[in-house]
Simulated scan of single mutants.
Amino acid sequence: MKKCLLFLFGLLMMSCSKDDFSEQKSIESKIVVEGWIEEGDYANVLLSSSIPVTDVIDSTNVLNHVIRSAKITISDGENSEVLSVKNDKNRIPPFVYFGNTLKGEAGKKYSLKIEFLNRIVEATTTIPKSVALKSAEYIKKNPTDTTGYVFVKFDDQVDEKNYYQIATKINGEEPIFVPSFYGNLDDQNFSSPSVSVQINRGILLFPKTKFTPYFADGDLIHVKLRTQNKDALDFWNSWQNEIVNSRNPIYPSNTSLKSNIKGGIGIWAGYGQSTIIVKTPPKK
């Protein structure tokens, strides 16, 4: 199933550039980055050029803006690796840069360097310590309902400053974790260290079916609690605000999404992570 995460093509209203366009054309656009490295896992980076406001934004045009010939280097200050690129047919766009030697560790700083044509794009992030999910439960308002929500519980570390993101992935329907709607949390807003929160499904671009904010009987739901940095919290909150205000987050109507990318736009984030699988009743 071809799905697209919240891929960040054309976050600003810029001029068009393709992977095989001339150097002059590439200068007119922005390099758009969505990259992450989780504790215990390898780096992933999605790379594109920004889409002009005059262009039609659909899955076909998105493919025209993929950058798949860049050199991407990840380093923890001691070791480094150049990411490979693969074709993942479960995604739109189907090209992902990925690592296979440098695994994320909590507390370490990771630099990102992208070299494409005559440009260099850079960013740094750190991986916060993971916080374990205590439980995740599928709950319906009425026993006869065929849909419901997921409620998660975890303990905030009171002696630390933490920012969180809750993401979900429905087995067989979504190939990647999707940040939950209103799932970005700042622990300054918690009334107790024992946190219980309802999860609403996140929004995919170019979904195969009509979006609904709830889960359904028959879903096998992977729930992930990420610890994140303030840069990532600000980025995802600005993305969410665009949706809440009925704007298209592909290119904000009057604001730019927050970014920690030097020489480009987007996000390079380190995450701690804890995952639980939630089984729902069989679909009738």
Rank of each mutant, 00 (worst) to 15 (best):
G183F: 01
N200P: 05
P252W: 10
K141S: 10
L112V: 06
V85S: 07
L102G: 06
F177H: 08
I139P: 01
D186K: 08
F116W: 10
Y251N: 12
S75Y: 07
A70N: 05
A123F: 04
L257F: 06
S194I: 12
T73F: 04
A70L: 06
S238M: 10
K140Y: 06
S180V: 04
S256F: 13
S135C: 02
I114F: 08
S135D: 04
K153R: 12
V244I: 15
T280G: 14
Y42E: 01
A43H: 04
T126E: 08
Q198L: 13
E137P: 00
S75I: 06
E137H: 02
V33H: 05
T212V: 15
N245H: 08
I243M: 12
Y149N: 07
I72E: 03
E38F: 12
F151A: 08
P207L: 06
V53Y: 07
S26R: 15
N64D: 09
W236V: 10
L6S: 10
L5I: 11
D19H: 02
P175G: 06
L133K: 02
P249D: 05
T126N: 11
K258P: 07
E160A: 06
D88L: 11
L205T: 09
L257G: 09
I92V: 14
N142Y: 01
V33N: 06
I265N: 00
Y42W: 05
G35M: 05
K210M: 13
K208L: 15
P252H: 14
K153I: 00
I166P: 10
I51C: 00
F154K: 02
K283P: 06
T280W: 09
I243H: 05
I170L: 07
F151Y: 08
D76R: 04
T147I: 08
H222W: 04
I114L: 08
R247S: 14
P207W: 01
V62F: 09
I31E: 00
P207G: 07
E122W: 01
I92T: 11
T168W: 04
D186Y: 07
E173C: 11
V150K: 03
S48N: 00
